[in-house]
């Protein structure tokens, strides 16, 4: 939103770091310049990856009085790029650089009904919304889906806070989320706020459009860090400037090109604006489109990609090579 989009950097001290699950840690930060945190806010964090500072976005899960502390939760899975590992290594007393809370995923109070849908770590983006909706007495359902009970962060806290309004879908308990059923049961006038992996987002988007529900009532946030395939190394060739760059599984294509001093335009760095578009001239392998900028048609044509989030995936038995042109 216009009022809070720009990042203002500051220092924050780590106050606490606790394991919530095998691979999720809750990290509590005390920012130098406390500010009120609205539901749906995230902070960007500068994390060193191999000594090079990099930028990651994390939703603010909850905050202390007047924003003097704020908590984020970080998933470090085998699919993560290096940032999560560095975040997990933080200990109380460490300082890091963070932005002020930025709200790109605002909750609107006043809808007739709400569904908040979280897949896995996506719970961090909608937890604050759930407490606001509870406090204003709104009609809401919090749907939390994950693979197993021990993998669900904040489960007990959410059960206590939201009681019957919490609906759990746990795959290995034989109760997976059925997106068609969920979207099919949505009452008119419902706003659905969604945060989760790209497969879930895609399924919900399709079901929503199929039911001809108003598209703007489907709200979602993606930090562009989940795709259809696990990240892997691939090669980018840019004939115009005679460059060949290898993109490591732990970095984005934009990051790798920037490190190679290729001058690229970008803005959001999360697959929304389309400014980082590159033209695909030739492709050995396939493209894992992780953006929400292109339509299905555009994605299928494989003619362009948003290099801030999207990746190439290898053909059987090889390494992917994508040949591009830049502006």
């Amino acid at each position: 939103m216009a009022t809070s989009h720009a990042a203002v950097w500051q220092h924050a001290t780590v106050v606490d770091s606790t394991a919530l699950t095998d691979d999720i840690r809750r990290i509590v930060l005390a920012p130098d310049h406390p500010a009120k945190v609205d539901a749906g806010a995230h902070i960007d964090v500068r994390v060193p990856i191999g000594g090079v500072p990099d930028r990651r976005s994390y939703s603010v899960v909850d905050d202390g009085p007047d924003g003097r502390t704020l908590a984020i939760s970080v998933l470090d899975s085998p699919r993560s790029r290096g940032g999560a590992r560095a975040m997990h290594a933080l200990r109380p007393g460490d300082t890091i650089e963070i932005t002020q809370p930025i709200v790109d995923f605002p909750l609107r109070v006043g809808a007739a009904h709400y569904v908040l849908l979280a897949g896995g770590i996506g719970i961090t983006a909608v937890m604050g919304m759930a407490s606001v909706l509870r406090s204003v007495g709104a009609d809401y359902t919090l749907v939390y889906a994950g693979r197993s009970r021990p993998a669900l962060a904040y489960l007990e806290q959410l059960q206590n806070a939201h009681g019957d309004r919490l609906r759990l879908h746990i795959t290995d308990e034989g109760n997976p989320l059925d997106v068609t059923e969920l979207v099919g049961g949505v009452e008119p006038g419902t706003e659905l706020y969604l945060c989760g992996p790209i497969r879930l987002m895609d399924a919900v988007r399709r079901a929503w459009i199929e039911r001809e529900l108003p598209y703007p009532d489907l709200r979602f946030e993606t930090f562009g860090n989940s795709g259809w395939f696990a990240p892997e190394d691939f090669v980018v060739r840019i004939p115009r400037i005679g460059a060949e760059v290898t993109v490591r599984a732990t970095e984005t294509m934009l990051e790798a090109l920037e490190a190679a001093e290729v001058d690229l335009m970008f803005d959001c760095r999360k697959g929304e604006c389309g400014l980082c578009e590159v033209r695909v001239l030739d492709l050995d392998g396939d493209i894992d489109h992780r953006d929400v900028f292109y339509s299905e048609r555009q994605k299928d044509s494989r003619g362009t990609m948003c290099c801030c989030v999207s990746r190439a995936v290898a053909p059987p038995g090889g390494i992917a090579i994508v040949t591009i042109d830049i502006s």
């Binding site: 598209y215 929304e272 339509s295």
Partner: peptide, 19 residues
């Protein structure tokens, strides 16, 4: 509600586009 319903120059809607 201040939500973008149509972005003339592209085929999708940027989810952040709200006033």
């Amino acid at each position: 509600a201040g939500r973008c319903v149509s972005m003339p120059a592209q085929e999708t809607i940027n989810p952040s586009a709200t006033v």
